[in-house]
């Protein structure tokens, strides 16, 4: 394949990464924005989404689409409920103290991951996509007869991959409607601006926190259910999404949903493209160093107001 089609396919793969990353990172971002805590166990909620999707699809018989649709609805809800339980049992008891929350969520990370290892096992397990038709993509080529449409060998994608991008966009629009057009969104934004003032006006801040934590985890699980037919479910799959979400959330500005989505597009696309042309490890080194330097040299700009 020539360079052009190669770049095209790389950016398409990048767009899928970006779509799923946007969902996962927005989950992390609203949790930070509203509750002011960093959830290190976020990647494990992602992993649980994929594992539960495998479990549900293996229970439901018939056409793979039935199981998949069931997983798409049930997995995020189950993960969300688990997150609410974690919030209730752990985070609330330490009063959402930023540093202790990080230590506690590191603990949660290991508990969730290792429990999955004990029950689900160390194998990677596939989930069948509900539909998966390969489509060849055209490419414009400049030939002696002028521009012509060609179908280079290997330049193809599947209907499912395109559907993932569509689904992610749709879910993000729903989230935007929830945040800006509903009463619950209004309450969330009020709590984000000033939780004490919100409490004084009769908003049950603790319940809002629990819902937000559940919503964040549910978004991660949703991203995982979408990607699992492409990637397979594995108990260690939470590491990369966690790292990438961190990167996206920090570069996009912690707590800013729009910034997060823009950064997810940028990081997802460039990760896809750098990984295809150079080494995936190099892509990750560049991204992690970028985050570290952004935090070192522009801490206030990205954390909102300076702390203390």
């Amino acid at each position: 394949m020539e360079f052009g089609p190669y770049l095209f396919i790389a950016s398409l793969e990048g767009a899928i990464t970006a779509a799923v990353l946007a969902l996962t990172a927005v989950g992390l971002s609203i949790v930070f924005g509203i509750m002011r805590v960093v959830n290190v166990a976020h990647g494990e909620f992602f992993m649980l989404g994929a594992v539960i999707a495998w479990w549900i699809t293996s229970l439901v018989g018939g056409h793979p689409a039935y199981g998949f649709v069931a997983a798409l609805i049930i997995a995020p809800i189950l993960v969300g409920i688990l997150a609410i339980v974690c919030d209730h049992l752990v985070l609330r008891r330490i009063n959402y103290d930023p540093e202790r929350t990080i230590v506690a969520t590191i603990g949660l990370l290991y508990v969730i991951q290792q429990t999955t290892l004990m029950t689900f096992g160390p194998e990677a397990r596939p989930v069948e996509a509900p539909f998966n038709k390969r489509i060849a993509l055209p490419w414009f080529e400049h030939t002696e007869q002028g521009f012509a449409l060609t179908w280079p060998w290997g330049l193809s994608t599947t209907t499912y991959k395109l559907a993932v991008i569509g689904a992610a966009v749709f879910i993000l629009i729903l989230l935007w409607v929830l945040m800006t057009r509903t009463k619950f969104g209004l309450i969330m934004r009020a709590t984000q601006l000033d939780s004490e003032m919100a409490q004084a006006h009769g908003i049950p801040v603790n319940r809002v926190y629990a819902m937000v934590f559940g919503l964040g985890a549910g978004l991660a699980a949703l991203g995982a259910v979408l990607i699992v037919p492409i990637q397979q479910a594995h108990y260690l799959m939470g590491g990369d999404p966690l790292l990438l979400s961190f990167i996206v959330v920090i570069i996009g500005g912690l707590g800013s949903v729009v910034g997060t989505i823009v950064a997810a597009l940028f990081i997802g696309m460039s990760d896809g493209i750098i990984s295809v042309f150079f080494s995936p490890t190099l892509a990750k080194i560049i991204a992690t160093l970028a985050v570290a330097f952004v935090l070192v040299f522009r801490p206030q700009g990205l954390f909102g107001k300076p702390e203390r």
């Binding site: 752990v90 008891r93 330490i94 202790r100 230590v103 506690a104 590191i106 603990g107 949660l108 990370l109 290991y110 508990v111 969730i112 991951q113 290792q114």
Partner: peptide, 9 residues
């Protein structure tokens, strides 16, 4: 993991 959670709590 359990130790970390219990210790913080």
């Amino acid at each position: 993991g359990l130790a970390l959670i219990l210790l913080t709590l």
